[in-house]
Amino acid sequence: MEIDGLFTALLFGAVIGGLGRLVIPGRQHVSLLATILVGIVAALLGTAAATVLGVAETPGIDWIELALQVGLAGAGVTLWANRSKQKLLH
Results as ranks from 00 to 15, higher is better:
Arg21Asn: 14
Leu22Gln: 14
Leu22His: 03
Leu22Lys: 12
Val23Asn: 08
Val23Met: 04
Ile24Leu: 11
Gly26Ile: 04
Gly26Lys: 03
Arg27Ile: 10
Arg27Gly: 04
Gln28Cys: 06
Gln28Met: 15
Gln28Thr: 09
His29Ala: 13
Ser31Leu: 07
Ser31Trp: 09
Leu32Ser: 12
Leu33Lys: 08
Leu33Ile: 04
Leu33Phe: 14
Ala34Thr: 15
Ala34Phe: 02
Thr35Glu: 11
Ile36Gly: 08
Leu37Arg: 11
Leu37His: 07
Leu37Thr: 14
Leu37Phe: 12
Val38Phe: 05
Val38Ala: 10
Gly39Gln: 07
Ile40Gln: 10
Ile40Trp: 12
Ile40Ser: 05
Val41Arg: 11
Val41Gln: 09
Ala43Trp: 12
Ala43Lys: 06
Leu44Ala: 15
Leu45Gln: 13
Leu45Glu: 11
Leu45Ser: 14
Gly46Ala: 13
Gly46Met: 05
Thr47Val: 07
Ala49Ile: 05
Ala49Cys: 07
Ala49Asn: 00
Ala50Arg: 08
Thr51Lys: 13
Leu53Trp: 01
Ala56Tyr: 06
Ala56Arg: 00
Ala56Ser: 04
Glu57Ala: 13
Glu57Tyr: 00
Gly60Asn: 01
Gly60Phe: 00
Gly60Arg: 02
Ile61Asn: 04
Asp62Trp: 00
Asp62Glu: 07
Asp62Asn: 12
